[in-house]
Each structure stands twice: as C-alpha cells, then as structure tokens.
Nucleic acid binder design. Structure first.
Lengths: 102, 102
DNA sequence: TCTATGGTTCGAGAAATGTCGAAGTAAAAA
DNA sequence: TTTTTACTTCGACATTTCTCGAACCATAGA
C-alpha cells in the first residue's frame, strides 16, 4: 500500500475515531439499511443526525464536514437542508481491507 | 448499537487513525497473510515493525500498546522480544461491521 | 560478571482535536 | 418584507495526542 494511500486511510479512521462522529456514521448506516429494505433511496437531515447526540449544531456541522472530507459520506444541499448519505465506494473499500484473511 | 460498544469501536478507529500506527497494523496484516500462505504461525518483533517508520523506539512501543489496548493486536513476551500478531476476533468484528449492505 | 540488545517508563513540549457561543447566511414561511 | 429555520463560519479555550530524549529494566551473550 502506497504512502498517500496510508495517509488517506488514516484520515478515514481518524474520522471514525470520535464517538460522536462514529455515532453519526452508524446512524446513517442504519438509516441506509432501513431505506434499502423499503426500496427507497436514503437521505437524512443534519438536524435528524443531531438527535441523541449531546453536542450543539455547530459541532455536528463540523463533524459532518470531517466525515465528508474523509470520503465516508456524501452531502448534497437541498434548499435549506443538507442531505447526507453513506458513500458506497468507501464502504466497499473498507470491506475489501478487512476481507483479507488474517 | 449500545453506548459502550460505540465507545469501544471509536477507540479501535482512533488507534488506526494515526499514520504510523496504521502502518504498523498494515505491516502486521501483510506479515500475517504471507505467513498464512506458507502455513506458518505469524509472529513479528517490534524492531521489525519499526523498519521504515520515521519514529523512535519509545514511540513504536507506545503505538503497539495502543493497538493492543484497542484489541486490534495481541502481544506476547518471548525473552527479550515482544511478539505481535493481529487479533483475529477484531478482524472478524470489523468485517461484520462493514459487511452490512449500505 | 560485564556488556549489549530489545523494550519500557517518564516527563515534557508542540501540535492537533473537540466543543462552544456569538454572529452570519440563505432559503422558506408568514 | 419580516421572521423563522437550518445550517455555517469564526475565534477561542480546554483537552488530547504525538513524539522525543533520558533514564531504566530484564534477558542474552561474551
């Protein structure tokens, strides 16, 4: 694995290494799975992600950006709201990494 | 996923979120795979892990402990040397996490 | 027994990170 | 057009993290 790859991967894990950010990501994964089950495309508002977390809006905003910059989630603006979704390629890459028999 | 689980998982990712630590872990994974191919049990010395990394021995020692505390690797003392190996259960858990269709 | 090797422990300092409140922006509702 | 909603940006501060050198410990070899 090349040096820049390690750098990028470390960033991904660093993004997941904060409890609140991880919770956001897990929430999105859960949402994703539910939506998939219902045959719908996933979407989720920032305000919704905040639910249950003990941090303010500015912090969530910051965390969402970190997750997006790490490539773990996609975001899309829709009017006032920010739609977040799991980035499927990131999931594939992570699956591949740990799929290796160790 | 329960609160303590999230906490533990965040710790795992935090451990992988540092470039040098991630490199150590990847080295071990690679070693593991090679050894498996040869039908041998894996083992690896700390000094060996240091190879290529631009950090001193105290830092590597610290990083190895972090990885071990996070449950990602197992360590075992053998005379002067510290034998490190990937913790298979951790790999299984991570595989399961990302195996979910998102 | 002396010395070398492999690793650990202990501050310490620099840098990165997490969270906040206040203020700002842009879209939507009234 | 005013107000509200949904989010962002901006310092700022406290905490955590990373790495280091110096000193230390235990085992192995000479």
């Amino acid at each position: 694995m090349s040096q820049p790859d390690v750098k990028r991967l470390a960033r991904v894990f660093r993004a997941l290494g904060n409890e609140n950010r991880l919770q956001i990501f897990l929430n999105l994964m859960e949402e994703s799975r539910l939506d998939l089950a219902k045959g719908r495309v996933h979407d989720c508002f920032l305000a919704k992600l905040l639910g249950g977390l003990e941090v303010g809006a500015p912090t969530v905003s910051h965390h969402v950006k970190e997750l997006a910059d790490a490539g773990l989630i996609d975001t899309e603006r829709e009017g006032k709201q920010l739609i977040c979704s799991i980035n499927p390629e990131a999931m594939t890459a992570l699956r591949a990494l740990f799929a290796v028999e160790a």
